[in-house]
Amino acid sequence: MKPKDYRTELEPVWCARCGDFGVLKGLTQALSDLEVPPEKLGVISGIGCSSRLPGYLRAYSFNSIHGRALPIASGLKLSRPELTVVVVGGDGDGFSIGLGHIPHAIRRNVDLTYLVLDNGIYGLTKGQASPTTSVELKQSLGLAGGEERPLNPVFLVLSSGCGFVARAHAGNLPQLREVVREAIRYPGFAFVQILAACATYQPQTYADDLYGRCDPLPAEHDPTDFARACELAVADRFPLGVIYRRPPDQAPAMAGALRWGEAGIWPAPGAGDTTVQPQD
C-alpha cells in the first residue's frame, strides 16, 4: 500500500503550517514501508490537536479521552497481541494529564509505539503553557507557570527504563519516517518525541529556532550505550535519531496471553456474524 492509501477522506482540522501534517505524512510512509495491513493496525489517541490524527488514518482508530490513550492501547495490545498498536498524542495529553501512565506502560513493556507530537503548547484550548513550554516563552507571553521549569521527556522515559527512545523533527521527513519505522519494529515499548511547530500559539521563529537546536546523531553513536543516551538527553542540543535502543532480548516485551478464538468463547474476526437481537 502507498502512504496515501493509509489516509481516510477526512480533512485535518489543523491550522496551516502545523507540524502535525508532517507527522501524519511520515507515519503513513513508515506504515507503507512496513506494509502493515490497515485492519491489523490500531491507532489510539487521547485529546488535543495531535490526538485528532487517528481519524485521518485507515485503521481501527480510537480518539478517546484526555490523557488516557496509553491504558486503552495497553488493553488493546495485551488482548490482541497480533495487532500493531500505535499511540499518538501531544505534550499536554502525555506529559501533563496522562504522565502517570507513562512509567507504568514502560514498566510493563507493552509492545506499543508512543509518538508524542511535542509542540510545547496547548493548541486546542488556545495557547496555555504545557509541561514542555520554555520559561522564556511563558514569561514573555505572561502564561501561567512562568516559574515552573519544563520537563525533559527523553530523560524521563530513559530513567523509567524505556527500551527504545528516539527523537525526530516534524520538518525532517526522511529522518522522521525512519525513526517511526524503527519504533514500530521494536518489540517492546517504544517512545518517540517528535518536535513539532505550533503555527498559531508559538512565535513565528519557534520552528526555526527549534530546528536550529537539532543535530542528527553522529554515525558512530552506539544506541545500546545507556550512559551516553542519558548524557545526550540532558544536553542543550537536540540530537535526532534513535538515542537508546536496548537489545530486546534483555527485557522481553509483555506477551499477549489470550488464546484468541481457541477457547471458543469469542469467534475470531470474520468467523461469522454473531448477531444478537434484544428480546421484544
Binding site: L70, G75, H104, L258
Partner: peptide
C-alpha cells in the same frame, strides 16, 4: 497503576473484541 487505567485497559481490550 490506578482505577482510571483499569477501566481504560478494559475499554481497550473490549474495543479489541475481548
Amino acid at each position: 497503576e490506578d482505577e482510571i487505567a483499569s477501566l481504560g485497559m478494559v475499554v481497550g481490550a473490549s474495543f479489541g473484541g475481548v
